[in-house]
Design a protein around this nucleic acid. Structure first.
Length: 543
DNA sequence: CATGCAATAT
DNA sequence: TATATTGCAT
């Protein structure tokens, strides 16, 4: 990623001072690892106890950039607890136990890499890659405090080269692309981005990450070019690390994010997109400002960035979060009053224009229209048929948690991410109904071959994996919802039904679940009488 | 000016 | 292809 000497000037000693949390129950191997790492100028904090390590990185998240955690063979929790709880820290798992399932478990639980013990020098030397990777590929919202300086630093360096000259543009990875990458990554992994990008080789049986795993050592990609005039302000990471100020005592906060990509033209006409925060309490991560980017004057940098970013029209990326706001606004207004300007007001998203909202609303309506098609004359008495057909045409209201004991048998229901905010964390943006094969938001992994579903989506609660009792009985588990499903029949819990009914009644403007039209009174009565219910306690319309 | 729809662009 | 933006009519 860094290809010229010039590029390196800001961080040629980058790993130096990088703060490594080392959790290893084995004192000897811990000492050994620590010594090796320190020889590489890493800054090691050793922990023997998992809980201590956890509380340390919880209390001082800024103190750690990356963690190396041993999978203890003795204790049952050994290391996994840390792995799961320190989600904001790129965590490398190590173990003497080289079995595949252990590795997979680590990776599935969010480890960025699994390294066999003993840790080779090459492995250790390159752990910084995970820091940079995380710093750039974590969604801005989940970027740990400790990584922000890294990111800013790297961005700054990259920015320098961008501004320096385009003569070597072929060699450069421009910040814009990184921004895009980061952005899209962020979209696909909402909660914690414990699922690393494919660029990290850890899923391939963990064997690639020998020294060859990274094609180049961080020191050897220089091209002998020395044309640095901007070096004065460039900061190495360890410097920036000193400027950390957050004292959060809880787990690193994941601020709500509302990101919008800004398009910006550069002097050379080259266009790029940068991510800007529309939320004032958010931090901007991609600095386009050329000047100093020390942590101390972040604010000014930030401001100038915003100004620069606002210079041009912004492309709104309707992230799930943004869309959620949008939907909430619409619900709040009611479908009748849902006009762009008011939605905009309710959304209270800085930088968002009425046009943006209007456009989005247009699409929203189109989608809604498509799934509330002319079913006018359809009778809800034809229920089975109805349900089958409209299965993938769910309304924004979730009827009840879907269950498909065998997804090859029953059509997997789709829950449009249009719909209920909070019903799911929509890292994948799905607009309304999908074609049938895509109806499943995520593929259900049959993990028989592996004995473990490694493709659990980021949304999958980790407890799901736990509940599997380790690695074995991985059946088809519907992990999309925290509700355990264990019945073959559609028997929605009463409270669920109640909830839906209540919701439907309180929000008459919303289409009904199950793709049903409001039945006429007649059809309702007919249906009820069919079911042997002759009397209903309804205030109007009856008898 | 705001809105919604259609065309266009990415 | 999907979806965001732009253009235009109301």
């Amino acid at each position: 990623m860094v290809c010229t000497a010039n590029d390196l000037q800001g961080w040629k000693d980058f790993p130096k001072g990088l703060k490594v949390l080392l959790l290893d129950g084995d004192i000897n191997s811990a000492a050994e690892t620590k010594a090796k790492l320190e020889a590489m100028d890493y800054n090691i904090s050793s922990f023997y106890d998992e809980n201590e390590a956890l509380s340390a990185c919880s209390n001082r998240p800024e103190d750690f950039h990356v963690a190396i955690v041993e999978v203890s063979t003795s204790s049952s929790q050994g290391g996994f607890k840390f792995l799961e709880n320190a989600k904001d820290l790129p965590t490398i798992m190590t173990s003497n136990n080289h079995c595949l399932s252990t590795m997979m478990k680590c990776i599935a639980l969010g480890a960025v890499e699994f390294l066999n013990k003993p840790l080779s020098e090459g492995n250790l030397r390159n752990i910084w890659q995970h820091v940079v990777h995380k710093a750039f590929n974590a969604g801005a919202s989940v970027l740990p405090e400790s990584l922000k300086p890294v990111r800013e630093s790297v961005e700054f360096v990259l920015q320098l080269q961008t501004e320096n000259g385009q003569h070597e543009s072929k060699m450069l990875i421009d910040v814009d692309n990184m921004s895009k990458l980061s952005y899209s990554d962020h979209e696909h992994s909402t909660g914690s981005d414990k699922y690393p990008a494919p660029s990290t080789p850890q899923l391939k049986q963990g064997e690639q990450l020998h020294d060859g795993g990274d094609c180049q050592d961080q020191t050897n990609c220089s091209t002998e070019k020395e044309s640095g005039e901007h070096d004065g302000d460039s900061k190495s990471v360890d410097t920036s690390c000193e400027n950390l100020n957050t004292e959060s005592t809880t787990q690193p906060i994941k601020p709500e994010k509302t990101l919008i990509k800004g398009e910006e033209d550069y002097a050379d006409g080259c266009k790029g997109e940068i991510a800007v925060s529309l939320n004032p309490n958010n931090r901007k991560f991609l600095s386009k400002a050329g000047g100093n980017s020390t942590s101390s004057n972040k604010a000014s940098v930030r401001d100038s960035c915003v100004i620069k970013a606002n210079r041009k029209k912004m492309k709104v990326d309707w992230t799930p979060e943004l869309h959620k706001k949008f939907v909430q606004a619409i619900e709040q207004l009611g479908v009748d009053q849902a006009i762009p300007s008011r939605i905009l007001e309710l959304m209270k998203v800085e930088g968002l224009t009425r046009h943006n909202v209007a456009s989005h609303l247009q699409k929203y309506r189109i989608q809604n229209r498509q799934i509330v098609p002319r079913e006018e004359d359809r009778r809800w008495t034809n229920r089975s048929d109805q349900m089958q057909r409209s299965y993938c045409a769910q309304r924004p209201i979730m009827a009840y948690p879907p269950y498909h004991p065998n997804h090859t048998l029953s059509p997997p229901p789709i829950y449009p991410f249009w719909g209920q905010p909070g019903s799911q964390t929509a890292s994948v943006r799905v607009w309304g109904p999908l074609r049938y094969p895509l109806c499943q938001p995520f593929p259900v992994v049959h993990a028989d071959a592996w004995g473990f579903p490694v493709l659990a989506p980021p949304e999958a609660p980790f407890s799901y994996i736990h509940n599997m009792g380790g690695l074995q009985n991985a059946k088809t588990v519907d992990y999309r919802f925290g509700v355990p499903q264990n019945s073959f029949e559609y028997h929605p819990a009463e409270e669920v039904v109640d909830k839906v009914v209540k919701e439907a009644m309180s929000k008459p403007w919303l289409p009904l679940p199950l793709g049903l039209k409001p039945p006429s009174a007649d059809s309702v009565l007919a249906e009820l009488s069919k079911q042997g219910i002759s009397n209903i306690t309804k205030d109007s319309s009856s008898s």
